[in-house]
Design a protein around this nucleic acid. Sequence first.
DNA 1: CTTGAAAATAGGAATAATTCCTATTTTCGG
DNA 2: CCGAAAATAGGAATTATTCCTATTTTCAAG
Lengths: 126, 126
Amino acid sequence: MKNYSRQREEIIKVVKDSYNHPTAEEIYMIVKAKDPAVSRSTVYRNLGLLVESNLIKQISMKVGPDRYDYMRKNHNHAVCTKCGKIFDFEYSFEYDELQKSIKEQTGIEISNDGIVFEGICDSCKN
Amino acid sequence: MKNYSRQREEIIKVVKDSYNHPTAEEIYMIVKAKDPAVSRSTVYRNLGLLVESNLIKQISMKVGPDRYDYMRKNHNHAVCTKCGKIFDFEYSFEYDELQKSIKEQTGIEISNDGIVFEGICDSCKN
DNA sequence: CTTGAAAATAGGAATAATTCCTATTTTCGG
DNA sequence: CCGAAAATAGGAATTATTCCTATTTTCAAG
């Protein structure tokens, strides 16, 4: 993340403009449409860097490849453990006490977006 | 999950006796020590079935293979997104309102153990 | 401007984890 | 017992991701 590259800029733009939690492959295809020479490694490497610097969020699921989400306002993710679909929702918590308790018991410091909610979605209940 | 098989029984036993969130491979190796003819597919298939029937919990992480945990009392998981280590902790929430809100907004019904907490652990802060 | 070192890239091979396939064996209700 | 359904072993295949190497690009200092 030290030097400028148009590939990285384009990758950021694509994730930012996507509101459906795209996979690395999907991002790759969209970027490729504009810049046919881009390579998968570049996409994967940059996604990793962007996650590390907290610009985007990576969501691992039980089914299918990881998904990426641009960091906006305060929204959380609910994941269906059956089909892997991701739903956004808004909710403001009283984290303080919980965070402190987790920190004490495990040493892990969680952030507001560090909570993933898992369950079964409507259409998978059949 | 209709007919009895000693392979499945052994797999359950191994997960139940493990308190360190073993991977499928680790479970396979332990079962294999007792029953050298067991195959990986059997382990994977049964873990899937057991997760489905809520006897064990599957934990996907950003790094490394999935891990499995026998369902005991009320404990939650905090995952380090850097090294993938999983920590158990205890905390009782007031879920009702939160659950209702998620249900309304996304259609997803989460259970008490359907919340994964992510952050950075102590030793990864260096 | 040049230049040179660090950063980034393309392209594809390699790896890791998991799923899938097929033939065989086991279970268990009637 | 017997037969259908369930489960299995063994390994091939697939999928997602990481790794490798040679080349290109960026950018700060002279």
